[in-house]
Design a protein around this nucleic acid. Structure first.
Lengths: 149, 149
DNA sequence: GTAATATAGTTGCATGTGCAACTAAAAGCA
DNA sequence: TGCTTTTAGTTGCACATGCAACTATATTAC
């Protein structure tokens, strides 16, 4: 509410928007062309893959991929229908649902990764050295809501 | 197609995705609550504001905001209906259309900016010094398709 | 000049997304 | 215990988005 945004800060923000849009649009095209998982599906399955027992509560998953609750419900519906996840009732909270990664889901991740990896490199990472990549990580990390403040 | 992506590069990519999602989600909420233009509308109107004569061809505008042609057609439909832009046939190419910013559109930009500015600061810029912001700009600039290679 | 090709923009269709409203269950409180 | 408030997840609805198909115009090749 107080002082104006500096031109440098505004420029950084606009560059973040543009870099993100261009890179993700290009990567989505690459994934589409290779007939592997789209980005949104990959993110959900990967979040489950990283989780203990390959399993997360619906709201945790929604937070992890930055999607609304309803959006995640629908996305998990589709992943379930495709056989990549299943739902399981949560023993300690009878309101809750677990989304669980299936072996088919794991296989889809494995199949997608080489394409995704290659695309991240071409569309994004090739522009930076490892030291620069670490600098980007270190800076952008501060924006995560729960890690700051 | 050749060597594997380094862990540093992958981490930078994941941080970019997360930082972008969290910041834009929070900013969209702020804009919504303040009853001003949403981000996508702001971007289009701002691109026109920056352009000579406040006017761009449809495909230029689509490129500027990284949206598909059809997506832009519909978005300009809505902006037109709201009175923020008008369409004008293009004299030197009879297939073409210009999207032109109206004075009402300019007013909406003016009204939105303080809210947006404040939100960019709170959700993004407050985490960085000006020097750091310049570092982010300098790095991310390389990702723009047309400015590289 | 005319045919073949490419480009600009719009539309039908299928799909993805968030908000608000809803049901069910847990937690707080007396 | 019984009542109120909060939280988890799903659904109805409205709207946004991309792809493919289409029309109209421009460009290229001969």
């Amino acid at each position: 509410m107080s002082k104006a945004l500096s031109p440098d800060a505004l420029k950084a923000w606009r560059r973040l928007l543009t870099a993100h849009s261009r890179a993700t649009a290009a990567i989505e095209r690459d994934l589409e062309r290779a007939n592997v998982l789209p980005l949104g599906w990959y993110d959900v399955l990967y979040a489950l893959y990283e989780a203990p027992d390959n399993c997360l509560r619906m709201h945790e998953l929604a937070d992890a991929v930055v999607l609304s609750r309803s959006g995640l419900t629908r996305l998990v519906d589709r992943l379930d229908k495709a056989g990549y996840v299943t739902r399981a009732p949560c023993p300690e909270d009878r309101r809750g649902q677990h989304a669980v990664l299936t072996s088919k889901g794991k296989a889809a991740l494995k199949q997608t990764w080489p394409v995704y990896e290659n695309s991240i490199r071409e569309q994004f990472a090739r522009h930076f050295s490892d030291a620069e990549a670490r600098r980007i990580s270190g800076l952008l990390e501060r924006v995560f809501g729960d890690a700051s403040g």
